[in-house]
Design a binder for these strands. Structure first.
Lengths: 344, 344
DNA sequence: AGTTCAAATGCAAACGTTTGCGTAATTTTT
DNA sequence: AAAAATTACGCAAACGTTTGCATTTGAACT
């Protein structure tokens, strides 16, 4: 706290200049070896702890990374944080984590605060509001001040930015193709909130795959949901209420998939025989769903790791923009694995 | 970055002293109203952003809270963070979040780094290693430097500390009593990792409740697990392999409960008729388990909120130590709700 | 015109640390 | 013994901001 011992305090004790203490503590060869030891021992004894704040002021870098995410309640986001920490802890960095709750005003406020705190860079996943309405002034401003910004998942529509994303399109394509190969004729999609990149990309992957197999997107088979099991349940209920029911469902994420599964079972349809189901994200509980849930892994932890690597490379002066795209992986489990399926 | 415009820059532009600029930007009445406006407009135009670092140095407070947690992959921890942010964002604070992976060395390292960064306080949930082996020197040191430390969940065994915890004992007692009231005769417990407060407290609550109803803890009905569905599955498998099977299971948390449920269903036992099941934490997916999982809510978000409040009160000079204990809440769902049950 | 007062601004120190340069003191070299 | 080199340390500025205390300026009094 306020009574922390400083270099000046130690200097006073030894009746010498602060510079001497500083050099002694940093093992500078200019200082007599005995003096050094004496000072170091004393500093240790009184619990001297370097004040990083003054260093940040001096060096114009804070050894801190700002992280802005729309939410922190899903596996994907926490895995990203784990990935960031895995790389940045050994490198001596700290993380300033800010959760915007998908709210643009909060995102802007947090961005300002991080800039004021002079973080060395910002890893950001844009809020839904920001993305929907293309409210990019705050981002532009930060970029114009040459603050390195690394986009994760939801990125800024400009060519010259750094970003690390998963190929959601491909993941969705794989999931849909898998359902087709399992013999599904009417594949529904539980579509994520509009305006969010991942929702759009996953829908596009779904759409493209259907097209590839000569099918059309049927409007009544696409329901929009929020990323929660409750919404998944409700939307699936509507699907099942329709005359022409689906025999396969691709859910925008696993939580939604859980909701879908619940109502499908309540209506006594068999999974995967009557309806095959695939989710997205491959959350740890996916395998422990009522019927083990097939899912597309988006390598969440790797997103964090790669973002951290990208950040470090920027700290080392690499200035050209990098765009990393990670490959999704389809994990097939019971919810979609049909043993006897019709070949297309 | 390094080229950020400072008060000095502006002062040079206006050929006046930095102090004038500072006062003008802070709307100090001492400065001529027109001068103020002119300066403010210019500052706005060139995108001046206050450098919080210099302020931290001056004021000896960083408007940052350090958060040290053993893990970030469960609902409980993310909900705590949400609670912290909900209170501290409006108060103008930022969060430095550090994940120790239950590792003592990392906890120590992070603590040092946070102290060096002069965070205003630290909210910490001790790592398992720290707790197991009572490796408290780093904590003692921080406390001796009068850095406010607020313990969450796993706390430090000293009387005069600030802490916010849930009454896990009571929650476990309630869960066990509920199973008894549902007519369970042989209630097993999936015990969390030893050395962790919540594991111990939940076991004690289970034990005390059994005692209250004149029963003994049967060793073969208590299995130790890690906080994962995989472990829950494995331990439950062993329980079911025993000659005298349980007819009720109290799992140390919901993930473990999911694992238990999986294997119970695979063995074709009926839930809750053959085996009633209760978890802990009330994760969002609990209601979407194969059979909706009964659970004890520990008010995770409230832990964050209360910790934040406690922190703010300390920032306002309240120095006496506070110990907040939150009440758990039993949420009964299908996994334990028996319609016809024997009264004890 | 001299004095008093108010308004507006400047000065300098402070927060804690680092670092280039200057300068003693001591040793080595010629 | 004088010159050169080495060793060990101090000085002061710098990072960006705030703030108590001068100081300046001009106006309003006697």
């Amino acid at each position: 706290m306020g009574n922390a011992v400083s270099i000046k305090d130690i200097a006073r004790k030894f009746k010498c200049a602060p510079s001497t203490i500083s050099r002694a503590l940093n093992d500078h060869p200019m200082i007599n070896i005995d003096t050094r030891k004496t000072i170091q021992e004393y500093a240790n004894k009184v619990g001297y702890q370097k004040n990083t704040i003054s260093l940040s002021l001096l060096n114009k870098r804070s050894k801190t990374l700002g992280v802005i995410i729309p939410s922190i309640s899903h596996y994907h986001e926490t895995a990203i944080i784990e990935g960031l920490e895995a790389i940045l802890q050994p490198a001596g960095y700290l993380l300033n984590i800010c959760v915007t709750n998908e709210c643009h005003a909060l995102e802007k406020e947090y961005l300002n605060r991080l800039v004021a705190n002079r973080v060395d860079a910002i890893c950001i996943s844009l809020s839904q509001e920001t993305f929907d309405r293309s409210l990019n002034e705050h981002i532009d401003l930060a970029i114009s001040r040459s603050l390195p910004i690394i986009f994760m998942d939801r990125f800024y529509h400009a060519l010259d930015v750094d970003r690390v994303i998963t190929d959601d399109f491909k993941g969705a394509f794989m999931a849909t193709e898998h359902l087709i190969q399992m013999g599904c004729q009417r594949i529904a999609h539980l579509h994520g909130p509009r305006g969010i990149t991942v929702s759009q990309q996953r829908f596009k992957g779904y759409e493209a795959c259907l097209k590839k197999y000569g099918r059309e997107v049927e409007e009544e088979l696409v329901k929009q949901v929020k990323f929660s099991p409750e919404c998944g349940l409700e939307a699936t209920m509507h699907l099942l209420d329709q005359k022409a029911k689906p025999d396969g469902i691709f859910a925008v994420n696993d939580e939604v998939g859980f909701g879908a599964m619940k109502v499908i079972q309540e209506r006594n349809y068999k999974i995967p025989e009557d309806i095959a189901l695939v989710g997205f994200d491959d959350i740890p509980l996916a395998a422990f769903a009522p019927i083990a849930l097939s899912s597309v892994s988006r390598q969440s932890k790797k997103i964090g790791e790669q973002s951290a690597q990208l950040f470090l490379s920027k700290m080392n002066g690499i200035s050209d923009h990098q765009q990393v795209t990670l490959e999704p992986e389809l994990i097939v489990r019971s919810s979609s694995q049909r043993n006897h399926f019709s070949k297309i």
